[in-house]
Design a protein around this nucleic acid. Sequence first.
RNA 1: GCGGGUGUAGCUCAGUGGUAGAGCCCCUGCCUUCCAAGCAGGCGGCGUGGGUUCGAUUCCCAUCACCCGCUCCA
Length: 511
Amino acid sequence: MGLMMDLEMDKLVSLCKRRGFIFPSSEIYGGINGFWDYGPLGVELKRNIKEAWWRDNVQMRDDMVGLDCSIIMNPRVWEASGHVGGFSDPMVDCKDTKERYRADQLYVFAYVFPAVNHKGEPAEAWLAGLGSSPGEAAEHPEKKAAKLAKKLGQPTAPPTIIPYMQLDLADRDKVIGPSTDERGTLTEPRSFNLMFKTFVGALENESSIAYLRPETAQGIFVNFKNVVDTGRVKLPFGIAQVGKSFRNEINPRNFTFRSREFEQMEIEYFCRPEEAKDWYAYWRKARFQWYVDLGLRSDRLRLRDHDAEELAFYSTATADIEFAFPFGISELEGIAHRADYDLTQHMKHSGKDLSYFDEELKERLVPHVVEPSAGADRATLAFLCEAYAEDQVGGETRTVLKFHPRIAPIKAAIFPLVKRDSMPEKAEAIYRDLRRHFNVFYDEKGAIGRRYRRQDEAGTPFCITVDSQTLAEDTVTFRDRDSCWQWRVPIAGVVQSLRDLLEGQAIPANP
RNA sequence: GCGGGUGUAGCUCAGUGGUAGAGCCCCUGCCUUCCAAGCAGGCGGCGUGGGUUCGAUUCCCAUCACCCGCUCCA
């Protein structure tokens, strides 16, 4: 499948750059791995996606409220959530055998043998062993040393034992890893905690460490009590948030898909424990349908339930909404049944009561939660992939982005057919009128066909052209992006016509 | 992190150990009545840092970025 698909992704990346959707971050300085910028068209597209999400999931519902939390929070939030402890062991890789070790379980046994090398220095062997204590780790190096002793003589003294973590940088190259006979194949210890660290305040020490949030969800949990106390909300209800998150990914890949800075659209939907299963089923379906309604209609979209081994220990059910990207099938959104895990964790760590009092049933409980967690950048990339098409028009290939009108960066472009006979003035007047209602674009440069094609690449659903017939009868030409069909609309009805079309009204049959 | 590939104009790509090219785009003017027209002119570049050399965009080393495969992915 490689070739065709690679080609398609290359073309999309190229189009995104050429038309101003997505640029590499800080490109004039050589870029920075895992970070991307949205250009003039990209920012409109992504905003439209986020706004559609907010409108559909918050403003159009009675049971949802919004929230916008700080990115940096009290570090104890991440202790409670498990992000600090969960994945912070420094790891060491063996470049020779590809083995991976926990650095705190590696001990180096430095042996000195009586034999001398050509410089007259005694032979040394720095042998690494693996174990939870030096005694446990000694076994393997001892065997190796015994072997070497046959050639080099019995060691002159017991080995010096050095925890790998405390090894001098200069000595690291001497070390022979547990699974190899080569020297210097072990990497430096690397922390695999994916949270970005920073310092708050003037002092840069342990007590001032803080983290850039790796997800927006925890900000919702820690504000649960605030919202309940002030928001006049009743179970079941959800809290939604859109915002940046940061993960120091080991290996960013696939254009914007796995970025180190990215934007999430998350809902925590709180409900009574006995209703959680039903709400999980509800959101699982509703969130899938949302993508379909916005244009991911093809069989590239799928809903996959996690099997038992895949589930987090606190979750009873999780489903991924996946999209078949050119580089593979990958996750757009996860819908997780998280029970009362997060609220309980924060109750333990903060010492605050985060339970909810049900007025009707006169009962105090810790709500369960269903979490639909979506990636705004991943959604944007999926919509770009889905929209990308190469059509044949009049024997020529055209590139077109067939966005759903709701997410299209520009809703319509207005052109004078030629730059004279007062056509520019008329077209500009229409443009100014439309601009009050929609994001529209005016262009009078070059040949009309070129202007159409340029809008096709931007994904603009409609073009409106002022021509000589306009001067005679006050009508303009509407042109549909996907079919290239054209029809006439009275100038007075342009705003309403465009609104109807953007809201899904079918285009007139081609005369 | 490992292996492979790529890096020349805004974009797509040629090319050379000796003053760097094309097409498209863009800008200006002329011309143009519906799907990337034509003419004339213009802007603009060898990813970065070292080394070899009289001279490096070219050869060597390092580094960065991107792509592919593996690995990783709370």
